[in-house]
Design a protein around this nucleic acid. Sequence first.
DNA 1: TTGACATATCTCTATATGGGAATATGAACC
DNA 2: GGTTCATATTCCCATATAGAGATATGTCAA
Lengths: 115, 115
Amino acid sequence: MARSATTSDVFNAIGDARRRAILDELISGEKAVAAIVDGLALPQPQVSKHLRVLSDVGLVTCRADGRRRLYRLEPARLAPLQAWLAQYARAMNARLDRMDDYIKELQREGDGDAS
Amino acid sequence: MARSATTSDVFNAIGDARRRAILDELISGEKAVAAIVDGLALPQPQVSKHLRVLSDVGLVTCRADGRRRLYRLEPARLAPLQAWLAQYARAMNARLDRMDDYIKELQREGDGDAS
DNA sequence: TTGACATATCTCTATATGGGAATATGAACC
DNA sequence: GGTTCATATTCCCATATAGAGATATGTCAA
């Protein structure tokens, strides 16, 4: 068999850097597709396709505004990720401090680049 | 072009449910490949391949013990994920309560199944 | 050295994708 | 209706897998 489908779950959906970029765009609030296209300098069809994937997983929702579609982030859907990470945090208290250092380091140097 | 490589970053690496299962196995501590194979009932070559991916990304490290290889989790490498999520938590305080509810709900029903 | 055990790698196939380009759908306005 | 703008969908291709199976590599024991 092949790779599992991106639409299967949140973990796969956020695996793509572009999709993360789109989500990042939406942090500041609802946006139309064109705004995302402008912000990321990606072809419109690609943005639409990625939005579809994100939508299938529930990470974004869409509402019509005239002939535009306004997309909005659904941060609650990131919960599975958060929950998964929490398992590790719980089980690994011993190394958490080191993890925190790493986080701070990342936040200091890069900014939007969370990869 | 095709999909981006799984080895490119942590986000892709944990996109695969089997790889998450392997990481979950390692939460309890260092384990040999055979132990993981037994625990997950996966073919040994698959486990080795997934371990390779996880290793490339730094999520696990390996040390030799006789003819066995003991793999160990490197939770610090989950930091990019944590940092990425933190962005959303920061920007979305308004909806955080709802997110917390979702998390608690997930933790209540499923347990290991964080997908 | 020979043999047994533990793990890694190689080969092969099917499949799901990501990106590009063209086009279809849909809404507002004349 | 016809036109224009905004977004979604379809077609096509190159590619990176995941999984299966066979085999190579490496380590210890006798």
